[in-house]
């Protein structure tokens, strides 16, 4: 078998060396790029080859895409994690085959996170699967913000700490919180069955399944069930769909083709889900419980207004926090008023 394959490879190599066919065989566009090359390539060459290919086809972040996929094939997270001599190593047939297969997926504009089926979020590595929303770096900061609020509570020895996440997607927020706070329990809800399944899977992989309850519930429809099942919690966290509907058309193909639009589209003013959450929050939170939202930079004043004008009983707007790029990205609210 091995002899045969080697013979075959040699024959192909001879044929391809003859002329322009060779170039074509190595890196012809779209359709045939999925066919692995017949000559062995070094890590460096293969990565450069696909970078060119991505660039020609207008795939975004061509260099990084090619490198992340290669690192994944070689069993690392980033190329920087591999030694310096790895670049000159020759790929095995298996590796070449896998690399080609994954890069062909990327060529269809599938996000790298879906291509390699995992991504890092804070200290965790999470499984990613279309069409479940891929967590963005801003959300890492949201978790940091929530932890700032919850650490003192855990330290002061309050028992039975429980938080609720609305729209958990891959489970990034809830699982990070559970990972950082060993005494916390979490309830996560999402209206998508795929998201619920993926969160469960990630929880199992990380060994956090005992402290998390995951329900397939829609905050716009199942308000009563949520109130019955999940109240009261010390913190309510959400990275809800917050894009304005009119912006949905201008998204990159990576997002629009592969991610669940329901996880992105927040209605005409991006506030559809946010309003539902605001309305439910006073009944879900304990006294002095906190509500954390990640939103569009245009939203914080709108939310502030909404809380004040519509007089959502007992909800108090605490502060707006900025993300790493200095955009007003996070809203912190607190339930105040009568004791439970």
């Amino acid at each position: 078998m091995e002899v045969l394959s080697r013979l075959n490879r040699m024959r192909c190599a001879i044929r391809l060396l003859k002329g322009p066919e060779r170039r074509q065989g190595l890196c012809s566009a779209s359709g045939s790029a999925a066919r692995p090359p017949v000559v062995r390539l070094s890590v460096q060459d293969a990565t450069a080859l696909w970078e060119r290919q991505f660039r020609q086809s207008g795939v975004s972040e061509p260099s990084l895409s090619s490198q992340y996929i290669m690192a994944h094939v070689l069993g690392a997270k980033t190329m920087a994690n591999l030694g310096p001599d790895v670049l000159t190593k020759t790929l095995t047939d298996m590796q070449t085959h896998q690399f080609w297969k994954l890069c062909a997926k990327r060529l269809t504009r599938m996000p790298v996170q879906y291509v390699i089926e995992e991504w890092d979020f804070r200290d965790l590595t999470l499984k990613m699967r279309p069409p479940v929303f891929i967590p963005r770096p801003e959300t890492e900061e949201l978790v940091g913000l929530v932890l700032e609020g919850l650490w003192p509570m855990q330290d002061s020895g309050i028992s039975g700490l429980r938080c609720l996440e609305v729209g958990c997607g891959s489970g990034a927020i809830s699982l990070s919180l559970l990972h950082a706070l060993p005494q916390l329990r979490a309830v996560a809800v999402d209206r998508s069955a795929e998201a619920v399944r993926l969160t469960q899977e990630n929880a199992n992989r990380l060994g956090l399944q005992d402290r998390i309850e995951i329900h397939q519930l829609d905050v716009t429809v199942d308000a009563e069930v949520i109130l019955r099942e999940c109240s009261r919690v010390i913190a309510l966290i959400s990275n809800p769909p917050y894009l304005f509907s009119k912006d949905m058309t201008s998204l990159e193909p990576e997002i629009i083709r592969f991610e669940d639009p329901a996880a992105l589209d927040g209605g005409e003013d991006g506030m559809l889900i946010i309003r539902h959450i605001l309305a439910l929050a006073p009944q879900l939170l304990t006294h002095n419980g906190l509500l954390y939202l990640e939103v569009d930079p245009r939203h914080p004043p709108m939310i502030q207004q909404c809380v004040q004008e519509e007089r959502i009983a007992g909800l108090h707007y605490l502060q707006t926090r900025y993300d790493i790029t200095d955009r007003p990205r996070f809203c912190v609210l607190q339930r105040r008023g009568t004791e439970d």
Binding site: V112, R136, Y242, L243, P297, D323, R327, R329
Partner: peptide
């Protein structure tokens, strides 16, 4: 001054980047 590659555009859910 903290610089990331995502300084332009609206950020957040608008973009999906692998440049960390």
């Amino acid at each position: 001054r903290i610089e990331t590659k995502k300084a332009s555009g609206a950020g957040g859910q608008h973009v999906n980047t692998t440049d960390s």
